[in-house]
Design a protein around this nucleic acid. Structure first.
Lengths: 155, 155
DNA sequence: GTAATTTCTCAACCTAACTTTAGGTCAAGG
DNA sequence: CCTTGACCTAAAGTTAGGTTGAGAAATTAC
């Protein structure tokens, strides 16, 4: 038992507040592993509602689906996750989140300084200086989010 | 004078740390308005380096290109922007940025609470509860970032 | 006066995260 | 039995933010 026949995709979708198509897509991305009933239809654990909630939260935190799949590795698929399971992966979240917040705050502080001094018009402004940003790399969607065109002299 | 022949796209690209193609794309999106020389090539103001810097910063802040175009409306295209110009739109930034930070902090606080109490497994957790999120709408990429499938009774 | 760069346009391609569509199958009700 | 609604698969479409490529014209360098 324990499996108690499972729930259908439509039910899961409604409970999670997602489109059915999104859930199929998530399965294709390896975020869920439903089984099939005799007629070939997907059956899910009720606990997958929480799993999907987690996915949605993680997305709000800025994680990509592959990254979320990684986080979910820590969540046992077979049994209902315990609070301890959630706590474990949640704390992984925590550090990512802290970093994002810190980055934004730094950006804001910089901006504050610039507003005060008008240095966006000057070459020594950290926010302004393109070379700084180009140098640190890996920020925005630079080069299709993966840094293709560069010198590439040697690995 | 003042226009002093302007600079070429390649120069601008290098100074801004962007690909040439990106700059053409930004022009197509209405973020820049270069003029053309006698041979039909784009010529830019030197001040456009800063304009592009602004675009890149705004992107890091999470603004979309249309939104950035809106912010740039306040930047006069014809003359070199003054520190006062930058200060004006920077302070517009400020409030957006504050909001983003606040949202993330709330999320973090919620998460902290959940880690402590294990309530991700319980129905009263704000982070967990799907219905809450489904109800507030307009968060993640729900329905292709624009809420299509909803009413759908007509058409 | 060439040769080598740059730049031009325009269309096609790319990734992420889904949705939509087309053509069929399964399950329940009357 | 027949209809209705939920479900199935596979492929194509969508949006954002660009990149890539082809073929031609303009600029720059020697």
């Amino acid at each position: 038992m324990a499996k108690s026949a499972g729930v259908a995709i439509g039910y899961l979708a409604e409970r999670a507040g997602l489109a059915v198509s999104a859930i199929r897509y998530y399965e294709a991305q390896g975020l869920l592993e439903p089984w099939r009933n005799s007629g070939g239809q997907r059956r899910f654990h009720r606990a997958d509602i929480r799993r999907l909630s987690f996915v949605m939260i993680a997305q709000q935190f800025g994680f990509s689906l592959p990254e979320i799949r990684g986080l979910l590795k820590d969540l046992p698929g077979g049994r209902t996750p315990t609070p301890a399971d959630w706590a474990r992966i949640s704390s992984g979240f925590r550090s990512h989140l802290d970093q994002r917040i810190e980055t934004l705050q730094k950006l804001r502080d910089n901006l504050d300084g610039c507003i005060g001094c008008g240095c966006l018009a000057l070459p020594n402004c950290a926010l302004y200086n393109p070379q700084d940003r180009a140098a640190q790399k890996g920020k925005g969607p630079r080069y299709l989010m993966g840094d293709s065109p560069e010198p590439q002299n040697g690995s």
